[in-house]
Write a protein that binds this DNA or RNA. Structure first.
Length: 285
DNA sequence: CAAATCCCCTGCAGGC
DNA sequence: TGCCTGCAGGGGATTT
């Protein structure tokens, strides 16, 4: 689900709430394969740590802890980080089916109680494609080290360099996190539309100007999406449960058969590398 | 080495 | 109403 804009929106929301807070209680549900670090060991290590920074790399979030280690979080397709009131309500049970009760369902895998806030941070993930990992103070992470440059700030030259010697569709290239970090299916389609480049084009066929247009389009689309709180299609919500508003601005993603916002021709759909690609065959070349 | 394929999961929409 | 199929924002391991 979440691509770079959604992860960044979550990060910015969490920073003012979490920084300086101590994790004073940890609850885990052992549901493989979410826990790259065994859940009980993860809980033991998180307890008592102070959160000193929250960083993002590609689609990963890193919670930096006071004694040096980090908690690495990837949200997969349906992962959510939610802030909820962590009160004990014995006298008045929660209303059935209410939003808070929904947050305490079987899909919650981790709950961190935050000092001085009355809040808990929940990790919830129905499909369990997300991952949680403890990284020791000096430990290197192969997952992080192998990521390509950040899509938000990548240059045309960098993109071109990463594609050198490769032969694959430009759409597949944008989705390869080792080539470029942060882009997923929505923003790959949107950026290619803005750059007027067909998703099926081989990377070896793009010229300098096209690589430049692509990097500019990536920056433009990702920035606009962050500004509007990300794209809420199905599961994605911000930590307070509210939806993003960029999904209404999608030009081609999820708009198969509907008019291209630029030329009114119907938006096309093809499969590229097992994933759907939306595009306008008139505007994109 | 690079690229294609399969698989991990749940939930939902659409067809019958 | 139920059952079936296909599809979904990700990415890793395995195969070719």
């Amino acid at each position: 689900m979440p691509e770079l804009p959604e992860v960044e929106v979550i990060r910015r929301y969490l920073v003012p709430v979490l920084l300086g807070r101590v994790i004073e209680q940890v609850w885990v549900r052992s549901a493989p394969p979410v826990f790259l670090t065994p859940p009980r060991a993860l809980a033991r290590r998180l307890l008592g740590e102070r959160i000193v920074e929250v960083e993002r790399r590609g689609k990963y979030l890193l919670f930096l802890l006071g004694t040096g280690p980090r908690l690495l979080v990837h949200l997969g397709m349906t992962g959510q980080l939610r802030l909820v009131a962590d009160e004990v309500r014995r006298a008045s049970p929660l209303p059935r089916g209410g939003p808070i009760e929904a947050m305490l369902d079987r899909h919650v895998h981790l709950k961190l109680r935050l000092s001085g806030t009355g809040l808990a941070l929940l990790y919830r993930d129905p499909r369990r494609f997300g991952r949680l990992q403890w990284l020791d103070a000096q430990a290197k992470s192969r997952r992080l080290d192998r990521l390509g440059p950040e899509a938000l700030t990548v240059s045309g030259r960098q993109l071109q360099g990463a594609a050198r010697g490769r032969r694959l569709a430009v759409k597949s290239f944008l989705l390869d996190q080792h080539a470029l970090a942060g882009v997923g299916n929505i923003y790959a389609d949107e950026a290619l539309f803005l750059a007027k480049i067909l998703p099926t084009r081989g990377v070896q066929t793009l010229n300098d100007a096209e690589w430049r247009r692509l990097s500019n389009s990536l920056c433009k689309v990702l920035t606009a999406a962050i500004q509007r709180g990300g794209s809420s299609i199905d599961d994605y919500v911000r930590p307070d449960g509210t939806s993003g508003r960029y999904q209404t601005r999608h030009r081609v993603y999820g708009r198969t058969g509907r008019p291209c916002p630029s030329c009114r021709a119907p938006v096309d759909l093809v499969r590229i590398g097992q994933r759907s690609a939306h595009f306008c065959s008139r505007c994109q070349r």
